[in-house]
């Protein structure tokens, strides 16, 4: 269970999160949607302590992330896979070494490591890529390696930052399928940030919309599909949208 409680975060004068509160229950996949620049990646980074909140707190399994001592934080991070928006692969290492690097922290024997590397690459349909360098891969392939690197750890949580953005429809569907299987077969709790509504409906159990630094609405897929909130409705239907034209009460949520 991940819990955001009244999280505030600003970078200089730019307020990004302004009282974000959200419960992410274990064993489900929660999708976070929101406009570009609304702070979805920033919210995700709070979960693993890459960013500390200015106020409020983020808890993972009851532990307040920014209060953890370095060793405890390492331990927490070892149980969370993070798929970066732009993959963030180590470009001085082969694909295989990228995946192995994380596994080395888990004290596995070499056979087990080799198996996990092969398995996770197979899952993202990149069996041939183990010895290649990130610079030799396409953007979509890099993204899939990023997913493989997270899955290989067999974490309790996986945070996916726009896993299907920029992929062709077929590969996107493969990745969606992968996220669904990770939850169903490995019991992974997923947090998926995306703008891709088709993907959101496929992988999500619940959808939360981040808007102006807070959660505008959170609900099951059906609840979101049938929302009468104009901001959420505009977003999921992909209609041009001008926040100034909303009635004032609605714009504030």
């Amino acid at each position: 269970m991940i819990r955001f409680t009244d999280v505030h975060k600003a970078f200089g004068p730019k307020v990004v999160l302004a009282g974000m509160t959200l419960d992410i229950p274990a064993g489900q996949t929660t999708v976070i949607i929101g406009f570009s620049g609304s702070g979805k990646s920033v919210a995700l980074k709070h979960i693993v302590g890459l960013i500390e909140p200015d106020a409020g707190q983020v808890e993972v399994d009851g532990q307040v992330v920014h209060d953890l001592a370095p060793d405890a934080l390492s331990l927490l991070r070892a149980g969370i896979g993070y798929v970066f928006q732009f993959a963030a692969l180590f470009d001085s290492m082969t694909v295989g070494d990228n995946i192995r690097l994380g596994l080395r922290r888990h004290g596995l024997d070499p056979d087990e490591v080799a198996t996990r590397v092969r398995e996770s690459l197979h899952l993202v349909d990149l069996d041939e890529a183990e010895a290649r360098y990130p610079a030799e891969l396409s953007g979509g392939m890099r993204k899939r390696v990023g997913i493989a690197r997270a899955i290989a750890l067999r974490p309790r949580y996986i945070l996916y930052d726009e896993p299907t953005t920029g992929l062709d429809p077929v590969t996107s569907a493969v990745i969606d399928e992968l996220m669904v299987r990770a939850r169903r077969e490995l019991g992974v709790t997923g947090v998926v940030v995306t703008h891709d509504m088709r993907s959101a409906y496929t992988v999500g159990d619940r959808i939360a919309m981040l808007y102006q630094g807070r959660i505008r609405q959170v609900g099951t897929i059906e609840e979101i599909r049938q929302t009468d909130d104009p901001v959420v409705r505009n977003f999921i239907e992909g209609r041009p949208f001008d926040p100034d034209r909303l009635p004032a009460a609605e714009a504030r949520a």
Binding site: L75, I80, F84, F86, F90, D91, G102, L153
Partner: peptide, 12 residues
């Protein structure tokens, strides 16, 4: 390119 962040999330 967030590789430093990635290191941290891999518990390094």
């Amino acid at each position: 390119t967030e590789q430093v962040d990635a290191l941290e999330t891999l518990a390094y």
